[in-house]
């Protein structure tokens, strides 16, 4: 096992972690501000991938289709999540956690069958756009170009979120709501539109994650269930509601998974759960401070 092999596997793991982060960031943001466990987040991810597929396949499999899909799919999913929030979720904010969980789970079931209705149950796949086909090779380290692209997008999204949360009025209100709910009411901010906007932003991130993954995975029914569990694990390990905690745990799990695939390929699926279990036992309330 050469050093260069480890290095390229590290990069692949990091890029996978970036996708996890993009999806988990949306989930943790919604947790933090709305205090809702949103199972539908996985469905938003799946919708991002399917809508992305339709856009890219409609335009043709070239670069134009790819870029357009990255713009349109997340926006469409953000729109859908806005409808979900206004149509259903807003009625259960004052109810028990369990009721909220079950409402979002009802939407998971419905979304799954709707996707089956519109796209059918066979899986779809997209090819990576021409500019990202092939691999970069530096010395003996080779990494697929698309993973390098993901490695750039991830930090960009993180940076964007950070700027947004710490430098805009809206972002500051979000953070205030996450730490102290009453504060916001006292400040006289209308929390209704904050909740709606944050939920849409969460949907946008999930959709972006789905669209970014579309060229490298089988786009299929059931991709929601796996993703939502991973995103939950990441969010819990990172500290509920803490975006930077989600970043750290995404990278840990992404890299752990990549090395797992290298050293014990049969057990790669188990590894994220083991990592999560160990981290939670060591730090039961998450790596970074939870906003709860």
């Amino acid at each position: 096992m050469s050093v260069s092999m480890l290095a390229s596997q590290l990069l692949v793991g990091l890029s996978r972690g970036m996708i996890y982060f993009i999806v988990a960031a949306g989930l943790t943001l919604v947790f933090g501000v709305l205090r809702v466990i949103n199972f539908t987040h996985g469905s938003f991810y799946m919708l991002g991938a399917f809508i992305g597929y339709s856009v890219a396949a409609g335009i043709g499999h070239g670069s134009a289709g790819f870029w357009l899909m990255l713009v349109l799919a997340p926006l469409a999913v953000a729109g859908i999540s806005l409808l979900v929030e206004r149509g259903f979720l807003q009625f259960v904010y004052r109810r028990e956690h369990l009721i909220q969980v079950l409402l979002t789970y009802a939407l998971v079931l419905i979304a799954g069958d709707l996707v089956k209705f519109f796209w059918g149950s066979q899986y779809r796949s997209l090819s990576t756009p021409p500019i990202f086909t092939g691999s970069f090779a530096t010395g003996s380290i080779t990494v697929p170009k698309y993973n390098v692209f993901l490695l750039l997008v991830g930090p960009l999204v993180a940076l964007g979120l950070w700027l947004f949360l710490s430098h805009t009025r809206f972002g500051k209100i979000c953070r205030a709501t996450a730490t102290d709910r009453e504060m916001v009411d006292i400040l006289g901010v209308n929390s209704t539109w904050i909740f709606a906007a944050v939920f849409a932003l969460g949907g946008w991130l999930a959709g972006l994650g789905g669209a970014l993954m579309a060229p490298v995975v089988n786009i299929s029914l059931g991709m929601d269930a796996n993703t939502i569990i991973y995103a939950f694990l990441i969010v819990v390990v990172g500290g509920l509601g803490n975006i930077w905690g989600a970043l750290i745990s995404s990278l840990i799990i992404g890299v752990g998974e990549a090395f797992g695939a290298l050293f014990m390929p049969d057990w790669a699926v188990v590894l994220p759960y083991i990592i999560t279990g160990v981290l939670l036992i060591l730090r039961p309330s998450g790596l970074l401070k939870s906003v709860w």
């Binding site: 259960v92 409402l103 789970y105 009802a106 939407l107 079931l109 419905i110 799954g112 069958d113």
Partner: peptide
């Protein structure tokens, strides 16, 4: 579409 039916039942129950 059994899951859709179950989802709708659940939705109505919750609300």
């Amino acid at each position: 579409y059994w899951l859709l039916v179950m989802g709708l039942i659940l939705l109505l129950l919750v609300l």
